[in-house]
Design a protein around this nucleic acid. Structure first.
Lengths: 336, 336
DNA sequence: ATTAGCACTCTCAAACTATGAGTGCCAAAA
DNA sequence: TTTTGGCACTCATAGTTTGAGAGTGCTAAT
């Protein structure tokens, strides 16, 4: 039945716009389907039987269920591209960024702005990037600062203490050795590549080198948490006031990076992923929907980004925005 | 009149605890003042005349006005120190931080946790810190990455393009020159110290050096925005539901770094500053109170931190928490 | 100066309409 | 078989009414 789908689409449309349950009459007048409200009532009864919509109470209209949204979204196969104006706005805004931090912040702001939802952007994963350069800086008191620069522009630094003072010369030497070994290598490969570095060194340098390498490995690998940026929290408050009850757990969840990463991480086979209501595994967010996608090059995803909001968000717009922003960020970050 | 003050104090106490207007009877019973409710009524009438408290409506109790809170806070001259357990918890939690970013994040979380308000921490100001080290990294395609490490552990990096390829040797040379000139210097002094560097160089290096120095200066000086971290937004949602109306502008304000910096920046002669309601200059936050303070060494403030919340917060606790956290962070950051 | 007592005011919550949006179903029409 | 007009029925919501109680201000006595 083709008209049934149109009715569902109309219900979602209306509900997203008004936030209130929509009745048969409203659909008959506002959406041109060429049938009367009675017919639509029949269709709605059928849709309700199949579990796509539900009535909050007897004398109210219907609202889509998670299953209904799901069907609606699946129907939205091809993502409608943004307007040229929007695209160029995105591009110029992101191009003004001066460094990786700036790119990340600008991206979240942009997404939040475009979707009027809460935007979440994950930093390029350390696991999937490679080392561009390692820098060692001697500090007073036998301290050495280890700085790692990734090919995405991410800079990680850590300070460690060594057994005995190192001169500029020995630091230079070690730096060159390290860079020779691991410059260009993937972060995950670094441990193996550095495995037997120590043995190749004269005994008196070995202790220091071991300490520094340990620090380096810690910086690269033993930091399981991925960094993320969130923006647009205030958009939550703009949503309907009935949902403000749902707001507290959402805000709390947003402060838990782990939760957010989990949310973003649940990927379908498809890249652009939409998780609706209970589909996402965090129970407190059963009223929330997540639109997320990878970014990076075509061949290699670097990290993910997306928006989280109420289940009755404007999926069409938001999916388009997420996809568009992801493509630009991917390009900018990988170009370096 | 000494008892009047006690009455005011009792009103603030009760109101902070219950969130509801407090009547004369409640004070007479719960707070031992040795007088009857009638007497307290008289005092309350006087306090109302003087503008310290106000009645939302006829048959309700009184709530403190901004002026009332102000008097209350001023009376709270000596900040009650935290318990030993709390202090040691703060210390160990902050000591686990691995780098500056981590310190900042942990500090906000800690403050938000201790005060149950929204915590804001400003990164050590670039203006007031000095250069520990400058690093130049040659990249492909005539690009050079300029990395500046401050004595507080802050790392800023920027990429610039130079006119002609630079070998390791010339980069080394320039790096040494730069470090010789500005290592240890305050960020603000860098421009003058680098003023005539270019002239002292052979002509063929000059163009590149100028580009790099320009990039360096841009990194250090021409970035007016200070970086800040916010945490505890979800605490807003836990406040009384009547105030949830006030919530939207607050959340919005929290996303505007400029606004937050302005809030934090309004310092009294005293260090530990409390701004109540309309006392802070942002109109939308006339229901909010800000408790903030400097942190750094005794002699030199590096930046500020604080909490923002409803005007009927627990000032005593929050002032103590802000002061304590500031002292620990100051120590940790300056120790490096 | 303090207190007990009392009249008075007003908010809030509970109880009670009544209005109307929206449905479901039936019988007729297409 | 599908669509449509009509109509009875349901139920949430908004508006009104009412009563109770909290809290005050004032006065006269201590």
């Amino acid at each position: 039945m083709d008209r049934r789908l149109s009715v569902l689409r109309a219900i979602v449309d209306e509900f997203v716009r008004s936030g209130e349950p929509v009745g048969s009459k409203a659909i008959a007048t506002k959406h041109v389907l060429g049938v009367s409200s009675a017919t639509i009532r029949n269709d709605m009864a059928a849709l309700e039987d199949e579990g796509y919509i539900t009535a909050p109470h007897t004398s109210a209209g219907r609202i889509p269920t998670d299953k209904g949204y799901r069907l609606f979204v699946d129907q939205l196969s091809s993502v409608k591209p943004l307007s040229i104006a929007e695209r160029s706005a995105i591009e110029t805004f992101l191009n003004q960024a001066v460094d990786l931090d700036d790119i990340m912040v600008r991206t979240t702001k942009l997404l939040a702005q475009l979707t009027q939802q809460v935007a979440v952007v994950q930093y390029p994963s350390l696991q999937l990037t490679s080392v561009r350069h390692v820098e060692l800086v001697g500090l007073p008191n036998r301290k050495v600062m280890v700085v790692v620069i990734s090919d995405t522009g991410r800079v990680e630094q850590r300070i460690t203490e060594v057994a005995h003072e190192m001169g500029e010369v020995s630091l230079d030497e070690l730096r060159q050795k390290l860079n020779g070994l691991i410059a260009g290598a993937l972060f995950v490969d670094v441990p193996t590549k550095l495995g037997d570095l120590a043995k190749s060194l004269p005994a008196e340098q070995r202790a220091n080198a071991v300490a520094i390498v340990a620090c380096l490995l810690e910086t690269l690998v033993e930091r399981p948490e991925e960094k993320i940026v969130v923006s647009g929290t205030s958009n939550i408050a703009k949503m309907g006031q009935e949902q403000i009850r749902t707001l507290a757990p959402l805000l709390e969840a947003l402060e838990e990076n782990v939760v957010l990463l989990k949310l973003l991480g649940e990927v379908n086979s498809d890249n652009l992923t939409v998780k609706i209501g209970h589909e996402n595994s965090i129970a407190q967010l059963s009223d929330a929907a997540v639109v997320s996608t990878n970014y990076g090059t075509q061949s290699q995803a670097i990290a993910r980004l997306g928006v989280v909001g109420s289940t009755h968000m404007n999926y069409e717009n938001n999916m388009a925005a997420v996809a568009a922003v992801a493509s630009y960020v991917g390009r900018i970050v990988t170009e370096g």
